[in-house]
Amino acid sequence: MRLAEIGFEAPARLLARYGLALQRVDAGTPIPGSFWGDEEAGIIGTTVYARDDTPVHSLLHEAGHLIVLPPERRNEVHTDATDSVAEEDATCYLQIVLADELPGVGRERLMDDMNAWGYTFRLGSAQAWFGEDAANARQWLVEHGLLNQDGQPAFS
């Protein structure tokens, strides 16, 4: 699923709840701060960059990297947000949860797209990881105030 299918309005509102901005990039223009290049989302400071052809999972993943960081560290980010395994796992978990906040997306569709893109998990799929192997990521998000005890986003 690409941003063109859902538009920029709902994702921009979601990111704003975390103090982040979504910057639309013109078609054919390189995306600033993109780690993977091509159509993949980019991050610089508190801004997530994306085009119409950017996959929704990419937008949520890069935004998730910024969300899991303490606000005082966000302005230092350019392209690569972390080398921490705990933060990477938390980012993957959070992007799945946040997919439910976007009309027409949802966690099942997002996990299918994650699998198609090539995310790798020990249990072989995003669904298996999320359901059976991600308790540490969920607990990390709860401890950092990003999810409530019910596993729902805790917006600041």
Rank of each mutant, 00 (worst) to 15 (best):
G19C: 09
E108P: 06
A21C: 08
A50W: 10
V85T: 12
G151M: 02
R17I: 09
G131N: 15
R107T: 00
A86P: 05
V25K: 09
V68T: 01
T47W: 10
M114L: 15
L147H: 01
Q127N: 13
T29L: 08
D83I: 12
L60D: 05
S84M: 01
M111P: 10
T54K: 12
P103E: 10
A126N: 08
E39M: 12
E5N: 14
F121R: 03
L3T: 00
E108Q: 15
A81Q: 03
G64Q: 02
T54W: 09
W129P: 06
R109C: 11
P32Y: 01
E132Q: 14
R74L: 03
N115Y: 01
Y93T: 07
A135G: 14
W129A: 04
N115M: 06
T54A: 13
L98H: 02
P70W: 00
L15F: 06
F35E: 13
R74Y: 00
T120E: 15
G151Q: 07
Q95E: 15
D53P: 01
P30F: 04
T29Q: 14
P71W: 02
I67Q: 06
Y119G: 06
E39R: 13
F121C: 03
G28L: 04
L98C: 07
D113Q: 11
G42H: 04
L146W: 05
V97C: 10
G37P: 07
P30N: 05
H65L: 02
D38R: 12
P55M: 03
V68G: 01
G131P: 09
D80E: 15
P32K: 00
H78I: 07
T79C: 09
I6L: 10
I44L: 14
D133R: 12
G33L: 05
F155G: 01
G45E: 04
P55N: 05
T120N: 14
A41Q: 01
I44Q: 08
R73W: 08
M111N: 02
E9Q: 11
D52I: 00
V142D: 12
Q95D: 12
E87C: 01
A90F: 06
I96R: 07
L94M: 07
T47F: 05
L141W: 07
E9C: 04
V68P: 03
D100I: 00
L102M: 08
R2T: 10
N148D: 15
S84Y: 00
A12D: 07
G64S: 08
M1K: 05
L146H: 07
R138N: 00
S156C: 13
F121P: 08
Q149S: 13
Q127S: 14
L123H: 06
D150W: 11
V142Y: 13
V97N: 11
F130R: 09
L147Q: 02
L66P: 08
L94T: 06
G131M: 14
E9R: 12
E5L: 12
V105W: 10
L60E: 08
L20D: 00
